[in-house]
Simulated assay, not measured.
Amino acid sequence: MKAEDQRALRLMFVTCHPVLPVTARVALTLSLVSDLSTTRIAHACRVPEQTVARRIRSGKRTLAAAGVPFALPAGPERADRLRAVLEVVQLIVNQGGLRAEALRLGRMLAQMLPDEPDVHALLALMEATPGLPADNLRGGTLRDSALDFLAPRDAGTRRSYAQTLDRLRRTLGDDTPLTELTADRIARVCRTAWGDAAPATWNRHRAALRSFATWAGAPALAAGLERRDDTRPPAAPTSRDTLLALRDHPLRDRTLWLLLHESGAPVHTVLGLDVQDLDLDDRHAPGRQVTWRSATARLLPDLIGARTRGPLFLTDRRPGPSRTPADPADLCPDTGRRRLSYERAEYLCKRATGVTLSRLRG
């Protein structure tokens, strides 16, 4: 059993623990194991979103108070715990909008617990039930599925994955049913968009699509995307003096490059900084684990100007109506410009310095 499969199985035994009320087990399983948003769970279970959120919070507190370990049960306890898991799957299958997800969970359990007859019996019953789909692919349009997939991610991951899925949506169309996606269609989009990109860029978009495909219950959709190895010799580190000498480049770009170099922070973290995150006097971003030194400190006040909130690094112009970011936090309320994207920042960096953004990190 692969490590990720073991983790999923352990997580499901935890979210279905008998110490929890049944409603909390269902909500936690759909949130943590199935990775569904609170909105979707509430819609399927026909309860208010606040109720679902309360069940999830209460369930987590109960598990913590009971000291439930993140481990597979063993011995006599295993049979009772497995019955609790199967009970939750049976409850999920009775929710009209979640039948496909229940089938996916049942197949996952059957694959990871091949010697458990009760698991296979439940799976056979679900597969024979009229109205259940023949496969475990989630329904909905590409747009709705992408938004549902992105909703629970942290801000940095959401921005990174959204760049990939936005390209998929623009090329294939927002209204494309998820059931019409194929590995060939996705591979063609990727080859057209990033076929000539650096291995690191290709692999970043590949990782986003693999995660989306797995979430959708159809990991085979990413089967045509092979990981690329970077065979280039390592570039020599870019020195601070080299960056300081690039005075002819825009203030925004020089500040970004120096901040990456002086902080050593991940690129997505730095691009995700907001003006209100910064403590200019103490030269750090509380809660973001980003610090900087004198060169960046000299540039930041000029870059920020009179702004008091919104993204630190902005695009050169306002986005058109069709390019407005899905996350309002990525739009500056003062200037109307959007957050600088990884792709644009990477292009400008390579054109000016000959290396990728990640190579600038000190």
Rank of each mutant, 00 (worst) to 15 (best):
W215Q: 12
N203Q: 10
A193S: 10
W194G: 03
R210C: 15
A235L: 04
T182H: 05
W194C: 08
D175I: 00
G224N: 10
G224M: 02
T255R: 02
T171P: 02
C190F: 10
P199I: 10
T231G: 08
V267H: 11
L258A: 08
A235G: 13
G224I: 04
T201G: 10
R240N: 02
H205D: 13
Q163E: 15
D241F: 00
T269N: 03
R153W: 05
F149C: 13
D166P: 07
T192F: 03
D148C: 06
R240D: 09
A213H: 00
R228S: 12
G217T: 07
A220F: 08
R228M: 11
T201L: 02
A207F: 01
D230K: 12
R153C: 06
D154C: 07
L244K: 12
T157S: 15
A193T: 13
R228I: 15
Q163A: 14
D229R: 14
A220D: 11
A200D: 14
T179L: 12
D174F: 11
R188P: 01
R159K: 05
P152G: 07
A151I: 02
L147C: 05
A198H: 13
G195M: 08
H205S: 14
R210E: 14
H205V: 03
R206G: 04
D175C: 02
T176D: 06
F212I: 07
D166Y: 06
L165R: 00
R153T: 00
P199V: 11
R210D: 04
H249L: 14
P250D: 15
R185D: 09
T164I: 09
T171E: 11
A223L: 13
P237R: 06
G217F: 06
R254C: 00
W194T: 04
H268L: 14
P250Q: 04
D184I: 05
Q163I: 08
P233H: 04
Q163S: 15
A223H: 08
D253P: 02
L256R: 08
T231H: 12
D148G: 12
T192Q: 14
P219M: 08
P152M: 04
L178D: 00
D230N: 15
